[in-house]
C-alpha cells in the first residue's frame, strides 16, 4: 500500500519539471501579459502603473482613434479569413479524400502531392505566393496577371493582395492570402478525412449495397454523418490556427494598404516591437487568447471527457 503511494509520488515528481515549466511559461506568462495589458507601459521601459481597461477601451472605442479602426478591420479580416479558409480546407479536403478512397492506382503519389505543403514553413509559403500573386502594372503584369495575359484574359487581371476594394467589410485582398493558406492546410483535412474513411468498415457499405442503396446515397446517409466528428476536429484545429495567424500574412503581404490584409497577430507584433506600445500589444494578445480559448477549451473538455467515458 505504501509502496503504491510512494510510486504515485514518484510519478508526480517525474512530471514535475514539465509541470513547473508549463506553469511558468504558459499560465504565469499569460498572467503577466494580462497585467501588462492593464498597465501604462508605453515605451522601452516597463511601467506597471495600473490603468484598468484603458488599453482595451482604446481598441474598441473612438477614444483609441486609428487603433480602434485598425483593430475593427483586423477582427473583420480574421472573421472572413477564418470562414473562407475553413470552408476551403474542409470542402476540398473532403472531396480529395473521397476521390482518393475510390481504390485509386497511384494513391500514394496523389496523397504525397496534396499533403506536402504541410511540411513547409508558413514563411516559405508566404514568399512563394507573394511572388505568384504580385500584380505588377497593367503594362507589365506579373505573376498570375502575366499568366492571364498569356491566355488573352486581360479582363480578369486585378490587383490581388494590393487591392483596396472591399465587398461590405470583406477586403478582396484577402482572397490570395486565403488561397495560400488553404493550399498549405488542405492536405491536413484530407488526411484526417481519409483516415476517417479508412476507419469505416467495408461491411457497412457492403450491407447498404446489398440493400440496394446507391453509392451517392451511401455517402450522403452513412459515410458523411460518420465523418462529422472529424469535421469538428478539423474545424477546431484549423480555426485556432487561423485566429492566431501571423507568419504567413506577415511574410506574404504585411498589413497592406488601409490594413486590407492586417490581422491581430501583425498588429500586436508591430505595435509592440516597432511602436513600443507594450501595453497595447499585450491587450491585443489577450483578446487573441480569449478568442482561441473560446474555441479550444470546450473542445478540450469534451474531447477528454469523452475519453474518460470510453
Amino acid at each position: 500500500m505504501s509502496q503504491a503511494r510512494k510510486e504515485r509520488w514518484i510519478a508526480f515528481l517525474t512530471l514535475l519539471p514539465s509541470i513547473i515549466l508549463l506553469a511558468i511559461f504558459v499560465y504565469g506568462f499569460i498572467g503577466w501579459t494580462l497585467r501588462v495589458s492593464l498597465s501604462a507601459w508605453d515605451g522601452i521601459t516597463p511601467d506597471y502603473t495600473w490603468v484598468g481597461l484603458t488599453n482595451f477601451n482604446h481598441l474598441f472605442t473612438k477614444a483609441g482613434g486609428v487603433s480602434a479602426v485598425r483593430f475593427r478591420i483586423d477582427l473583420w479580416n480574421t472573421l472572413f479569413f477564418t470562414i473562407f479558409f475553413l470552408l476551403g480546407c474542409v470542402m476540398v479536403g473532403l472531396i480529395l479524400a473521397i476521390l482518393l478512397d475510390q481504390k485509386i492506382r497511384g494513391e500514394g503519389v496523389f496523397r504525397t502531392i496534396y499533403l506536402f505543403p504541410m511540411a513547409l514553413s508558413f514563411v516559405v509559403t508566404g514568399v512563394v505566393w507573394q511572388w505568384i500573386f504580385a500584380p505588377g502594372t497593367p503594362s507589365r503584369p506579373r505573376g498570375i496577371n502575366a499568366l492571364l495575359g498569356l491566355f488573352g484574359l486581360e479582363q480578369l487581371q486585378w490587383r490581388w493582395y494590393t487591392s483596396t476594394e472591399s465587398i461590405g467589410p470583406f477586403h478582396v485582398a484577402l482572397i490570395p492570402v486565403i488561397i495560400a493558406a488553404a493550399w498549405q492546410m488542405t492536405g491536413y483535412t484530407m488526411a484526417m478525412y481519409l483516415a476517417g474513411l479508412r476507419g469505416i468498415p467495408e461491411e457497412l457499405r457492403e450491407a447498404a449495397r446489398v440493400d440496394g442503396a446507391s453509392e451517392s446515397y451511401i455517402y450522403r446517409r452513412i459515410i458523411l454523418p460518420m465523418l462529422r466528428p472529424i469535421t469538428l476536429s478539423a474545424l477546431i484545429v484549423l480555426g485556432h490556427i487561423s485566429l492566431k495567424i501571423f507568419d504567413l500574412i506577415y511574410t506574404m503581404t504585411g498589413k497592406g494598404p488601409g490594413f486590407v490584409t492586417d490581422v491581430p497577430g501583425i498588429f500586436m507584433f508591430e505595435t509592440t516591437f516597432q511602436g513600443n506600445h507594450y501595453a497595447q500589444g499585450a491587450a491585443i494578445s489577450i483578446i487573441m487568447l480569449v478568442m482561441v480559448a473560446a474555441v479550444v477549451i470546450p473542445y478540450l473538455v469534451s474531447s477528454l471527457r469523452g475519453e474518460v467515458e470510453r
Binding site: D42, P257, G258, E270, T271, Q274, G275
Partner: peptide
C-alpha cells in the same frame, strides 16, 4: 517612434 506609428496607421487608412 510611437507618434510616427500612429501617423503611419492614419495614413495607411487614408491611402485606402
Amino acid at each position: 517612434e510611437g507618434w510616427v506609428t500612429g501617423i503611419s496607421d492614419a495614413m495607411s487608412l487614408f491611402v485606402a
